[in-house]
Design a protein around this nucleic acid. Structure first.
Lengths: 344, 344
DNA sequence: TTGTATGCGTTATCAC
DNA sequence: GTGATAACGCATACAA
C-alpha cells in the first residue's frame, strides 16, 4: 500500500509488464527500437491500467510539449472570447493542444510575466499573450502578443490599425456635420488606447477643429468606467453632438446612459464604438463601430506561433490587421441648432 | 555555461542570494520560520531575477495546485463558450486559477480520460469535464461533469432537465395543432440526447399521436449533420408541419435548409430548438427554443468543485438545472390542409 | 533489444 | 533558522 496511490505511473506499468521503465518509456513514445512482442505487451498493460503520462513530469524533463498556451486576463469578456475563438479555430489539426490560462484573482501588475514563466517552464511550446502590461518577456521563451503595450515590444505582435480605424470613425462623424465630438479613452497603457486617441485628434486636426480637453474623458475599456465617462460628457452644459468611444463596451455604456438621461440616439447624440463585438450589432440602436476582427487577430497570432515553432523566423514581427468602419444606426447628422452653424 | 539557460530556477535564486534552495523554497512559500532579513534578501533576488516557480516541477512534487482544470472538446462552439463564461465568472476571486484545456486534434474515444489524467497529475486540484464519453474516471481525482453520458455516472454531475424541457416544446407544438412533428436527435451517447428524445416521445404519447420512425432522424449536435437531417425530413412526400431539433445548431440548420427548399418558417414549417444559445435569438426568424442556461451549468459545476475542494462532500451529486421554453417567432399553427383534420 | 543511472525544479524530512 | 538530501514521474546517454 503506497502512501499516495493517486495516479498510475510509468513505474506501475513497467512492473506490471515485467519490463524496465526505460522500455515502458520507449513504448510510450513510440520509439522504433523495441521488440514487437514487448511493445504489444506494454501497450496492453497501459490500456488495462488506464495509464496516462504525467504532463508535469513529462514536460519538466523534456522542455517541450505539443501545447500552445494562451494567456488572457479573464474569459468572460466578449473581446477575449473572440480571441479564444480565433485561436481555437487556427490551432485545429495543427497537432498542438491549446491551454488557456486565466487567473482567478484580479490581474496584478506583472500578471502576464509570472504566468508566461509558469507555462513556459516546459508546459507549453509557446505562449500567446493578450494585452500584456509587461513590455518584454524572459528570453528563450516563445511569446506572441496580441495588442501590445507599446511599439517597443521586442516580441512578435499582432495589432489592429487602430489609428486608421479611429480616423475613419472621426471622418465619418465630421462628414455628417459633427463638430463637437466627445471621446472616451481606452486603457492608457495599451498601444490600442494610445493609437485610437491619436486617430481622434488627427480627425480633429484634419477638419481644423480645435481640440477641446473637456470633451475627452479617460476610460479603461470597461462598461462601468464607460458609464461614468458617458455621464460626465452628456451632462455637460453644452454637450457633444457625438461621442466616439474607444471600444464597444464603452460605447454601449453611452447608449445606456443616454437612455437614462432621456436622450435619443442618434437624434440627440450620435455614438461610434470600436471593436465590433457581437453585442454591437444587437444594441439598440445597432451600434456603428470600427471593426477590428478580433477573431482574425487570434488566428494570425496562432499562425505566427505555429510557424515559429516550425522553425520559421517571424520575419514580420509586427503584423497589422486592417480595421474598417461598420455603419449601422447609431449616427446621424446633428440637429441643426446644436452645431456651430457649419454644415458639411 | 549551462546547456539550456531557459528559465531561472530556484537554484539560481538560492545561489544569488547566498542561501540554500531549501531556504529559497521556504521564502517562496511564505513559511514563517525564516529570518526577516533572509526573507527580504531572497524576495529581492527573486524580483531582480524575475523568478517564477515552475508549475510543472511544483505540482509534480506536491500533488496539488490552486488551479481548476476545464476540459472542453473544443472552444469554438457557442455551447462551450457559454460554459467557459459560466465557469470563468464563478471562479473569480475564489483563489483558484482556471486552466482550460482543449485538444487540437479531433476528440478521440477516450479523450477526456486521457486529459483528465494529464491535468490531474498535480497540475490541477480538480477538473470540470464537458460532455465526456467516458463514464467513469480514475479514483482519487476530483472530477465534476457537465452533461454526462449516462446516469450511471459516479462523479458529481450537472445536467439540465432535458426530458422536461423537450416535453414542454412538444406540448407547445401540439397545442398549436401540429400532429406530424419531425425530430432531429442529439448525440446518442449523451444523456442529454437520450432525454430529449424521451421528451419527444412522451409528448407524442400524451397527445395520443402514434410514433412514426420516418419522422425521426439521428443527429449529433453539429450543424453539418443538422443540414443532412433537415433535408431528409423536409424532402419527404408528406413532410412534417413542425420540426423539433435536439439542439439549436441543428435547428438553425433546419432554418437554412427550409430557405434552401423555398419553404417559409413558420408558415410552412415550424421549428423548435434546444439550448438557447445567443445565435438562436438572432436567427431569422428568431428561434423558439428550450433554454437550459448553459452558463448557469458552468457556474454550478464550478461551485460544486470549489465546495468539494473546501472539504465539503458533494451531497447532491446530480444537480439538475431547470429548462424552460422560450417562445419566439419560428412556430405557428400548421396550415389547415396540412394537418389530419384534428384541430387543437 | 533492453536495462542502469542520472537529472529536470521543487518540496518534505530530517539533521545541524 | 538554516541546510543537506531524498523523493516526485519521466526521458535519455550510456552500458550490457
Amino acid at each position: 500500500m503506497r502512501s499516495k496511490p493517486l495516479a498510475v505511473t510509468i513505474q506501475d506499468v513497467a512492473r506490471a509488464a515485467g519490463v524496465s521503465v526505460t522500455t515502458a518509456s520507449r513504448v510510450l513514445n513510440n520509439k522504433d527500437d523495441v521488440a514487437p512482442a514487448t511493445y504489444e505487451k506494454v501497450r496492453r498493460v497501459m490500456q488495462e491500467l488506464n495509464y496516462t503520462a504525467s504532463l508535469a513530469a513529462k514536460s519538466m524533463r523534456s522542455h517541450t510539449a505539443k501545447v500552445i498556451g494562451l494567456l488572457v486576463p479573464e474569459v468572460v469578456e466578449v473581446y477575449n472570447q473572440e480571441i479564444i475563438k480565433g485561436v481555437g479555430a487556427a490551432i485545429r489539426d495543427s497537432g498542438y493542444d491549446l491551454m488557456i490560462y486565466t487567473g482567478g484573482r484580479p490581474a496584478g501588475a506583472s500578471w502576464e510575466l509570472e504566468h508566461v514563466a509558469l507555462l513556459s517552464n516546459g508546459l507549453t511550446a509557446g505562449c500567446i499573450v493578450v494585452t500584456p502590461a509587461a513590455p518584454r518577456f524572459p528570453n528563450g521563451v516563445k511569446v506572441v502578443v496580441i495588442d501590445p503595450q507599446g511599439d517597443g515590444s521586442t516580441v512578435p505582435s499582432v495589432i489592429a490599425r487602430n489609428r486608421v480605424g479611429a480616423l475613419a470613425a472621426m471622418e465619418y462623424l465630421i462628414g455628417l456635420g459633427h463638430r463637437r465630438i466627445g471621446f472616451i479613452g481606452g486603457r492608457a497603457n495599451t498601444l490600442s488606447g494610445i493609437r485610437r486617441f491619436e486617430g481622434y485628434k488627427d480627425g480633429l486636426t484634419a477638419a481644423k477643429i480645435a481640440f477641446d480637453p473637456t470633451l475627452v474623458v479617460a476610460g479603461d475599456y470597461t462598461y462601468e468606467r464607460g458609464v461614468v465617462a458617458a455621464r460626465q460628457l452628456l451632462r455637460q452644459e453644452q454637450r457633444p453632438t457625438a461621442i466616439f468611444a474607444a471600444n464597444d463596451r464603452s460605447a454601449i455604456a453611452v447608449l445606456d446612459v443616454a437612455r437614462e438621461l432621456g436622450l435619443q440616439v442618434p437624434t440627440d447624440v450620435s455614438v461610434v464604438g470600436f471593436d465590433n463585438v457581437p453585442e454591437a450589432a444587437e444594441a439598440t440602436p445597432r451600434l456603428t463601430t470600427v471593426d477590428q476582427s478580433i477573431r482574425e487577430m487570434g488566428r494570425i497570432a496562432t499562425n505566427l506561433m505555429l510557424g515559429w515553432l516550425r522553425g520559421e523566423t517571424p520575419d514580420t514581427p509586427f503584423v497589422k490587421v486592417a480595421t474598417r468602419l461598420i455603419v449601422r444606426d447609431s449616427c446621424q447628422a446633428p440637429a441643426r441648432g446644436k452645431t456651430d452653424g457649419r454644415w458639411q
